[in-house]
């Protein structure tokens, strides 16, 4: 494992820690999209089915379990915690799941490496992860009320993708067998979705202000 990959994973992990910290300390999930969290949970469940049939390393297994548990934990807080659930912006978070889930499922059935249940589900998770942030970005645009932690959460999620791209470039040159075009294409799309957000995030940061969206 190279440093880009490790830094990417840590960035991903850190973004989740930030969310849990925000929810736990402020007892609020204001500004967070439950739709995005549900989509990520679906991504983890469909991708990490391989926990049952393949083993890569202890590191991978532990990280997969952390991602699964934390995503269910976040959803539990947003849905069932007495105080937290009252802070959820239900009226603003109106993005429909099927708008993303259906096209990703269809695409996974058409463009995949092998037409088997596990492979299609894995491919579906790759496509869905690429677009799962959209409800969160829409909510952000709508509420314009971006607290620091939500801004940092999205920043670290974007950083995770950017670091993975560096990891792929590194692996492309160092591992001749490593060619995952499908994953790379989805990863590029995913990182691209953050470009606009990054622009405003860095601008606000430079000006030493809170994140403001136009």
């Amino acid at each position: 494992m190279n440093l880009f990959r490790l830094a990417g994973d840590m960035s991903h992990l850190f973004s989740i820690v930030l969310i849990l910290l925000k929810i736990y300390t402020s007892k609020s999930c204001a500004g967070l999209s439950m739709k995005t969290q549900e989509l990520y949970t679906l991504v983890f469940v469909t991708r990490y089915l391989d926990l049952f049939y393949s083993y890569v390393s202890l590191y991978n297994t532990v990280m997969k379990l952390i991602f699964l548990a934390s995503s269910f934990g976040i959803l539990w807080y947003m849905r069932y915690h007495k105080q937290v659930k009252q802070t959820y912006d239900r009226e603003q978070d109106t993005f429909r799941h099927y708008i993303l889930v259906v096209p990703c499922a269809v695409l996974a059935l058409i463009v995949n490496n092998e037409l088997s249940v596990t492979e299609v589900l894995w491919t579906f998770s790759i496509y869905l992860e690429a677009v799962a942030i959209l409800p969160q970005l829409v909510l952000l645009q709508r509420t314009k009320n971006v607290d620091n932690l939500t801004g940092q959460y999205i920043f670290f999620l974007g950083a995770y993708r950017a670091l993975y791209i560096l990891n792929w470039i590194y692996r492309y040159w160092t591992e001749p067998k490593y060619r995952q075009y499908l994953v790379w294409a989805a990863g590029l799309v995913q990182t691209g979705l953050y470009a606009d957000f990054f622009y405003y995030y860095l601008k606000s940061w430079q000006a030493g202000e809170k994140l403001r969206l136009p």
Partner: peptide, 10 residues
């Protein structure tokens, strides 16, 4: 076709 050992990322 992608070998399983290539799926070592998260």
């Amino acid at each position: 076709r992608i070998a399983k050992e290539l799926k070592d990322e998260l």
